[in-house]
Design a protein around this nucleic acid. Structure first.
Length: 270
DNA sequence: CGAGGGACCTGGTTGC
DNA sequence: TGCAACCAGGTCCCTC
């Protein structure tokens, strides 16, 4: 499900319901996610959630005793519901608030995570080595060009590497490379500063546009209010292998890069 | 250090 | 209809 726009959509959806609310109960039905959910997360009970933030694709629930770190993996989803609505299959965790509302975490594939830290959350091992936020000023052409100098991998893997920049997943990597006219297999260290200028602009543009409409719903992504995202209608290449390029009409090519489906236009992307 | 591939899971779709 | 194979929005971790 989630790339950065979907996680940001989730954050915006749940934040107003959680901020300044007190946690009264935490129900863990299935602790086996990517890492086991620690029992210590129950330290949150009795405390107010002071803020909900996002770093990369991680959601952070801040409180006085510590921070819950949540990742939605490939199939995870969070919703705000009324406490007492019966749990379905794959509803792994409920964080119940004293106002009878409930944050429910659902994740069929269980690639997601829910961890707890009592120290500075940005220093947590999952977050400490992440690259810059794609929508921040720090992520610019100079940064990307310099980071690419020592990297002999193809540009698609390079921009999907969280140490390069966070939040660019498979869908938006395909889209941004198309919009920038860069072939996904081009080695990262052969791309000019000028091309990186365009690529940075397109990454920011495509992520912002997706956030604006609530993310991309392919199969099962739904925002925390149950609404789908509408970015699918704006996809230029992802999921369109063998169809015609929307710019030049040439048939798009679909290949695999690092086991991930990759679609590009052989004429528009060099 | 960087690159490449396997691993973790379930469920939907495709093809025989 | 049944069943196996393959595919899916992520990313850590091991080997070379």
């Amino acid at each position: 499900m989630p790339e950065l726009p979907e996680v940001e959509t989730s954050k915006r959806g749940i934040s107003p319901h959680l901020t300044n609310q007190v946690v009264s109960e935490i129900i863990i039905r299935q602790p086996k996610l990517r890492w086991p959910i620690p029992e210590s997360i129950k330290a949150l009970i009795g405390h107010k959630i002071t803020a909900v933030t996002r770093r990369g694709k991680y959601l952070l629930l801040h409180s006085k005793p510590g921070t819950a770190i949540m990742h939605l993996g490939m199939s995870g989803r969070v919703r705000i519901i009324n406490k007492g609505i019966p749990a379905q299959k794959h509803d792994h965790v409920d964080i119940i608030l004293s106002n009878q509302q409930c944050l429910r975490l659902t994740d069929p594939r269980r690639f997601g995570a829910l961890l707890w830290t009592t120290t500075e959350p940005l220093q947590h091992f999952l977050l400490a080595h992440l690259g810059p936020e794609p929508l921040s000023k720090k992520f610019d052409a100079d940064y990307l060009y310099n980071a690419a100098k020592k990297r002999n991998i193809n540009v698609k893997q390079f921009i999907m590497d969280n140490k390069t920049v966070v939040g660019v997943g498979n869908i938006y990597a395909n889209e941004a490379l198309f919009l920038a006219g860069i072939h996904p297999e081009k080695p990262a260290n052969t791309i000019t500063l000028k091309q990186y200028r365009l690529l940075v602009e397109k990454i920011k543009q495509v992520l912002q546009a997706a956030i604006k409409v609530g993310g991309t719903t392919l199969r099962d992504f739904q925002a925390s209010d149950g609404k789908p995202g509408y970015f699918k209608q704006q996809l230029r290449v992802y999921g369109r292998g063998t169809q015609a390029c929307m710019t030049c009409q040439k048939t798009l090519q679909e290949i695999r890069i690092n086991q991930r489906s990759t679609v590009y236009c052989p004429r528009c992307q060099k």
